[in-house]
Structures are given as structure tokens and as C-alpha cells.
Computed example of a mutant assay.
Amino acid sequence: METFITHARGMTARIAERREEQETFGRLAAGQSPLALFITCSDSRVVPSLITGARPGDLFELRTAGNAVPPYEADRPASSEGATIEYAMRVLGVADIVVCGHSHCGAVGAKARGEDLAELPAVRDWLDRQLSSELPADDGPAVAAAVQRHVREQLARLRGYPCVRERLESGDVRLHGWYYEVHTGLVAAHHAETDLFLPL
């Protein structure tokens, strides 16, 4: 934690030393105009700015256990995830939505392997509600097939949100499914025409 504190203390000085940084952060104070909504896992090994090279203000991020997108349900109270998606669509007007799953995902792996999560009731209940019971069984550490299936399902769920569907129909937003390999840095993208994930 001390490393984080030391870095935070030096933030003001680092910005003050570089004109480019002053301009960037000054612009951010006036408002945000992110390029994409980036939906990914809470896993500490997945760092969106590192994967994409994004600068501050480029990505509007939504992180959940297992990069799960709750299904849209008009007759139920809004979720934090749903509110984030709606804000990205109707206020920020992002042009792209990325759902990024990753190898070695603990959430998807637990579901795919049928692990006993009795000691983690909140995790168990979240995964039971948000992850498909039809994920392919996968005993390997990367759980690639299960994660990729899960990413496809989250893209389908996004299409169920009225705010997303409207902008898809008008051609104002694009959906992207990504699979990130933690151990190699490889990023593969879903291709709807073949239903395959291929390296970018």
C-alpha cells in the first residue's frame, strides 16, 4: 500500500512538470467524452488501459465478477451495471462497447468446473444468477472455451437493453467481444460471421 500512497502523493507534481499532462487533465475537468464502454472482469490481472493503450478519459469502464452483464428486466429495479450501460449510451454516446473476458478467470472457471462455493455465498449467488449453466465443462486452467462462450452470451444480453438496441439499429454503436490471454497478452476478437475468436 505504501507504494500506492507514494505514487498518489507525486501525482500533482508529475502533472505540473509536463505541459501535455496539464492539458489532458485540464480537459478532463471540463467533462468526459470516452471512446468506448469497456466491460471486463474485476480480476486484478486485467488492466484495460494496458491492454488498449488508452489514456485517461478514453474508456468508460464497467467491471464485474466474471465480466457479467445482468439481463435487462424492465419490471425489476435497475442495477448498477444497467445504470452504467444506460449512461454510456444516452449521455456519453460512446461509439463502441467491448466485452472483454480473460483466460484463467476464477468466476467462469468455478462455474465451468462446478466448484463448491458454499463458503462464498455472495460469489455463488452472483455466478448462479449471471453465468450460464450451459458453459462447456473445462478442467484446464485457461478455461478458454467457457470464457469465450460467456463473452458471446454477454453480447447477446447487451442487445436486450433498449438503450443499446436503439443505437445498434441506428448504426451509432458497435459491439465487440474480446478474449484476453493473461499469460501471453494475446487479444482475440469475436467474429460474428464465423462465431470464432481470432487474434486482433
Results as ranks from 00 to 15, higher is better:
Gln32Tyr: 02
Leu35His: 14
Phe38Met: 02
Cys41Val: 05
Asp43Pro: 05
Arg45Trp: 08
Val46Trp: 12
Pro48Phe: 13
Pro48Val: 11
Pro48Arg: 10
Ser49Met: 09
Ile51Gln: 03
Ile51Val: 13
Gly53Arg: 09
Ala54Phe: 06
Gly57Asp: 04
Phe60Glu: 03
Glu61Asn: 11
Thr64Phe: 07
Gly66Thr: 03
Asn67Thr: 09
Pro70Leu: 02
Pro71Val: 01
Tyr72Phe: 14
Ser80Lys: 12
Glu81Pro: 02
Glu81Asn: 01
Gly82Ser: 00
Thr84Arg: 04
Thr84Ser: 08
Ile85Ala: 00
Met89Tyr: 04
Met89His: 02
Met89Ala: 01
Arg90Asn: 15
Val91Thr: 12
Val94Arg: 04
Ala95Met: 09
Asp96Leu: 13
Ile97Leu: 14
Ile97Tyr: 13
Ile97Asp: 13
Val98Thr: 11
Val99Arg: 07
Cys100Ile: 13
Ala110Ser: 15
Ala112Cys: 13
Arg113Ile: 10
Gly114Ala: 03
Asp116Pro: 06
Asp116Phe: 10
Ala118Thr: 15
Pro121His: 06
Val123Ile: 14
Arg124Gly: 03
Asp128Arg: 07
Arg129Ile: 03
Ser132Met: 05
Ser132Asp: 10
Leu135Ala: 10
Pro136Val: 14
Pro136Ala: 14
Pro141His: 07
Val151Cys: 11
Arg152Ile: 06
Gln154Ile: 04
Arg157Ala: 00
Gly160Asp: 00
Tyr161Cys: 01
Val164Gly: 00
Val164Cys: 01
Arg165Thr: 09
Arg167Tyr: 10
Arg167Pro: 05
Asp172Trp: 08
Leu175Ser: 03
Leu175Lys: 03
Leu175Tyr: 07
His176Val: 07
